[in-house]
Amino acid sequence: MHEFRVQVGPAAFRIGSQWKRPLDQLAELYRDYPVPTVPDYSVRLESVSLLRRFIRPSVAIHGDYMLPDAAPLPLAQGLLAAEMAMNLQMALGWRRHLLLHASAVEKDGRALIMTGQSGSGKSTLAAMLGHRGWRFMGDEFVLIDLDKGDAVPFPRLISLKNEAIGAMMATALDGRFGPLMEATPKGDIRHLVPPADAIAAMAQPARPALLLFPSFGFEATVREVAPSEVFMRLTQASTNYVALGEKGFSTLTRFVQTVPARAIDYRDGIEAEALVNQLWAECA
């Protein structure tokens, strides 16, 4: 069994695999990240059966936390399997922070948090802003400190899908990209290493200052979102709100009472960046 360890924000992972190649890809992409000694989570990438280790190799995810019906992936998508497995451990197991399915960037010690359905563009927006004067904090999970309410970074590899791949290759000219994985269950996927400042500052939290609900594909508009609607949408965007009990309630209510929220529609990255800058100046 081959092994790879990596620290992403406050979480430490150990990934074991029967194949070397996915771990070599991870080691290359995560080469600037700290290596932990004691992992929070162990993940294993194993063959579906003994034969399938060699013939049309097929990767099944095993770990501390598992979804029993997770479909195996072909070995060429082993890197994706590892990333999905790490996300799964966080989503199902993390209890030290309120976990929001959201992306975030930071400026002047304050965080802009973006949440929405898959396809809303929150991941691409965070990746783009991370190359345009903001510090990238994460494109998948934002961790909210249960005592202070700060946003804690989780800057794992940026997972680009479909059209976002070309857009970010044009934006992040000096970016380090992983292999292009075509026709995965999520479409075409290519990972991008976060900018160096995001990795260097991954232990530095930021005070949440603005929450956006972006929607891609519509004419530019801005709508204020009431705290009660924010609360309902964020309970849906959190995988551990219920598990945290009273701490989750106090953390989330403080968040919705103190952080202004807007829903924005946008048609392209330039329009989105203009809206973000305008709202940041007005609200944050």
Binding site: A226, P227, S228, F231, E246, F249, S250, T253, V256, Q257
Partner: peptide
Amino acid sequence: ILVTPLDSLTLVYQR
């Protein structure tokens, strides 16, 4: 119970 009023709705967390 923890009661938190928010605009038109009120949250009630039951311990």
